[in-house]
């Protein structure tokens, strides 16, 4: 059995290559091979959403994708959101609204929120809640998370 296969994935615009076992999950490639630890492993059963990344333009739970499946693809993680020292409007809004307590769900929340706003720049509160359905905050800080997304929608030109 050939144990490792070569892969190449573009992460936040930078090419990352390596040799991985076919069973390796994409979230582990991101954290251990690329060294980008903003993406978390939470439930590891595609329910909690803290491993959410953008894979070829749409959100995916990186605990339920094999690295080999994503070879040749393009991934954006939370580290790809800020522009140098300038936070992304969603990051800014999460800060302003105290939309994080322990912060473990935050990377996935911001990426899921970004997907909502890309499809619908002026979502209603209910649409925001539906869009965040696959992301769990165990601190239960949902009120402020929804407020932050509403504020980001305004600063990003929707709202």
């Amino acid at each position: 059995m050939k144990l490792k296969v070569p892969v190449e994935i573009t992460i936040n615009g930078k090419s990352c290559s390596g040799e991985v076992e076919p069973r390796q999950l994409l979230v582990h490639f991101i954290r251990e091979n690329a060294g980008l630890t903003g993406t978390k492993v939470g439930c590891d059963t595609s329910q909690c959403g803290t491993c959410t990344v953008v894979l070829d333009g749409s959100t995916a739970k990186a605990c339920t994708v094999l690295t080999v499946q994503a070879s040749g693809s393009s991934v954006t993680t939370i580290e790809g959101f800020a522009d140098g020292a300038n936070l992304h409007p969603l990051q800014e809004a999460f800060w302003n609204n105290h939309a994080l307590q322990c912060g473990f769900c935050t990377p996935g929340m911001i990426i899921a929120a970004d997907a909502i706003l890309r499809n619908n720049p002026s979502p209603t509160r209910e649409e925001i809640r539906q869009g965040l359905e696959g992301n769990i905050c165990r601190c239960t800080g949902y009120q402020n998370i929804v407020r932050a997304v509403e504020q980001a929608a305004e600063t990003m030109g929707g709202g």
Partner: peptide, 9 residues
């Protein structure tokens, strides 16, 4: 089915 990210994949 599932949630938005699951429905994408």
């Amino acid at each position: 089915v599932g949630d938005p990210a699951v429905r994408n994949r």
